[in-house]
Design a binder for these strands. Structure first.
Lengths: 247, 247
DNA sequence: CGTTCCTCTCAGGATCCTCTGAACCGCCTG
DNA sequence: CAGGCGGTTCAGAGGATCCTGAGAGGAACG
């Protein structure tokens, strides 16, 4: 259904006809919907947003998304009822549920299957993006695992296996370190500000200071760049950038 | 009728013409149907779903499935009657019955001859998937048992024989341990969350906490990894992953 | 109907991760 | 040259996460 096209290290998701994959975001909090819509759009999806179940089903029947990001708690309809109707419209759709941490979590269980996944609120945009990419990729590449790894120079990042290698050597990263590096890899050769990093990598309810970013950059350097030609560069007053060595 | 194609350790079911095997899921509970459809689809089947006998027979005559997963208790028609009509349409279709625990169990036992099987509710998705794979594989490979074993490094898992070996040595596992390992093997090199594991390996009505998963991972480690290079790895805050030793 | 085995709950303890605070460094500017 | 600013790094508290032993309850089996 979908194939992965390589292009200078980053894998780009494409449908068989060459068009970008389509996503639909459904959440009644406009702020969250907007953030997800623009994040997914920037990541190469063609996206629609909806604030309630009714318009979500409407949008799905016009737009035929490959992926639906769906808040379980909607004002008008139950999330599972929505899922069933969505499946009736387009059978092959993947669903990524958004749930509150403790309340609905257990109700999800027992219903979600291979084509579905879920993320608990509050989440980071990177988390949702990573899961979305994973779902869509797996839906299209059931028979092949080629193209999963992202490459920057001799740095390879496998989001499925949660694995990072530099020059073949496996590097152990914590969850936050991995999310940060993943963000840098997806934005390689582009300077990203500390504010952007905070927005994308940390949970949206995180109230802390940009100092954490500096700290985790420092951690990453120790693990990724240790004793090697550095790939993580500081652009003073602007942010950070990940570049392949020597260019 | 069907052959097994190997690809880097995991076996993939294929029909003789190279197309994926076709399945039809019939259950009047939409949640169960959706979950099974999605799970089978991600396992490589081409799947249709139906909520009642009438549309099931309709779908079967259009879709010509190799496998039908059939709830015995349907609103409009008896499951056995459905089976009879399905067999009229396509003679050598495999049927996997879904039955309530106590009600019809013994009647099924008599009925289920000649390659058919049944699973009692509440079931785990892994259980249904394993039986489905088994039925379809046996229907296509009556004379040969090649390709049954799944391999990850020196770990070999035979779903038919319910047998696990590491480095040739036979390892005794309980039913739950086997189901968990089977799930990990089918998702080798991919990190799976505790929530995903609960969804797939435990019965869908299981109300317990994700803590059980940790417990069974611990059991598995003692049996699989004992005194050897570990294959089961914890990814803190994310889940677990099964990897062949040193790669 | 008794025995055995399996499954799950509970709780203690160990480990690891994350973030705060503060010291330090170097560059730029006044 | 002094001071300020941005960035880096260290050390440690607190918390989250995970592991494992002990044991109760129940299912399966003879």
């Amino acid at each position: 259904m979908l194939v992965v096209m390589r292009e200078s290290g980053t894998a780009k998701l494409r449908r068989p006809d060459g068009t970008p994959p389509r996503a639909l975001v459904v959440d009644d909090e406009a702020g969250i919907t907007d953030a997800l819509v623009s994040a997914l759009r920037f990541d190469g999806f063609e996206v629609r947003g909806a604030l309630d179940a009714r318009s979500a089903i409407q949008a799905a029947s016009e737009h035929h998304p490959d992926l639906v990001i769906l808040d379980v708690m909607l004002p008008d309809l139950d999330g599972f009822e929505v899922l069933h109707r969505l499946r009736a419209v387009s059978a092959h759709v993947c669903v990524l549920f958004l749930t509150a941490r403790d309340s609905v979590e257990d109700r999800i269980r027992g219903i979600s299957a291979g084509g579905d996944d879920y993320v608990t609120k509050p989440f980071s945009l990177q988390e949702v993006l990573a899961r979305s990419r994973g779902l869509v990729r797996r839906a299209g590449l059931a028979q092949s695992r080629v193209g999963v790894g992202l490459r920057v120079g001799d740095l390879v990042l496998d989001e499925d296996a949660h694995e990072v290698r530099r020059g073949g050597e496996l590097i152990e990263l914590t969850a936050t370190e991995f999310a940060l590096l993943s963000y840098l890899v997806h934005n390689q050769r582009r300077v990203v500000s500390k504010a952007q990093i905070l927005d994308q990598v940390w949970n949206y309810d995180f109230g802390g200071q940009a100092h954490v970013v500096e700290l985790y950059i420092s951690y990453l350097r120790k693990k990724i760049d240790a004793g090697r030609a550095p790939m993580i560069h500081t652009v003073r007053g602007v942010g950070y950038v990940l570049r392949p060595v020597e260019s």
